[in-house]
Write a protein that binds this DNA or RNA. Structure first.
Lengths: 119, 119
DNA sequence: TGAACATATGAACAGTTATTCATATGTTGA
DNA sequence: TCAACATATGAATAACTGTTCATATGTTCA
């Protein structure tokens, strides 16, 4: 043990190879950050409900608010977050703006999550 | 429009079928909640790093702390959350406790997330 | 049995976040 | 151009969350 840093436990000596292995396969810091940010977006039941609402069809903000029994403002704020994460996109049709799932990533991620939750 | 609730916009009238459709396919409230809770667990870069560390092999708390350059306490707190979500499990080996991914759900969910993030 | 080690946990604090309220921006039709 | 509608947004507040610190629990070995 000798010159060992006092703040660390014995594992540092014993399992150094494991530590090295962990560090070797760890993705870059910014990838980890982005990944956590992505899941954070899914980690709110309001946004999950919005995503489920858009699962089958494009819907305008007003209908979303009505469907989910939320204020228009709250929906808009959450849609902004979903859009920044590229999970949803939108298009204007006259006075209304329709939102839709950008691609199938959302559906696949939710499907995987559902598998874990409903088993 | 007439007797329409003033606080709601026209969409309520115009797209009532869409609203009904949204409500019809929406999962139960508790499933939505559980799903959001699950993703919330993935939505923290510390926990993501722990999950990646466990991706390839079982590791004890001490090695995790050392690998991720975190305090043992912080790691333990996060492991508790991961365990409550059934994402990780553990076993004791002498003085140490080894954690590992409970099943392949974690790997699949992370893989889907990575696809979205790294494209 | 007791000392050393490994892990867990409660309380407190700082940082983050979702909603609300008020209001701004942008579109349509008369 | 103006009124009505649809959506976006900034500020404020309340609730939540991750880390730290101190300490408790549980295991091994002499």
């Amino acid at each position: 043990m000798a010159i060992q840093d006092v703040e660390h436990c014995d594992c540092v000596e014993v399992h150094k190879n494991k530590v090295d292995q962990v560090l070797a396969q760890m993705p870059e810091e910014d990838v980890l950050y982005d990944l956590a940010e992505l899941f954070k977006v899914f980690g709110d039941s309001t946004r999950i409900r919005i995503l489920f609402a858009l699962y089958g069809a494009d819907i305008c903000v007003c209908d979303l608010a009505e469907s989910l029994n939320m204020t228009q403002s709250a929906v808009s704020h959450q849609l902004k977050i979903l859009k920044q994460s590229r999970l949803v996109s939108n298009r204007r049709e006259g006075k209304q703006i329709y939102y839709f799932l950008t691609d199938d990533h959302v559906r696949r991620i939710i499907a995987q999550g559902m598998e874990h939750v409903t088993e």
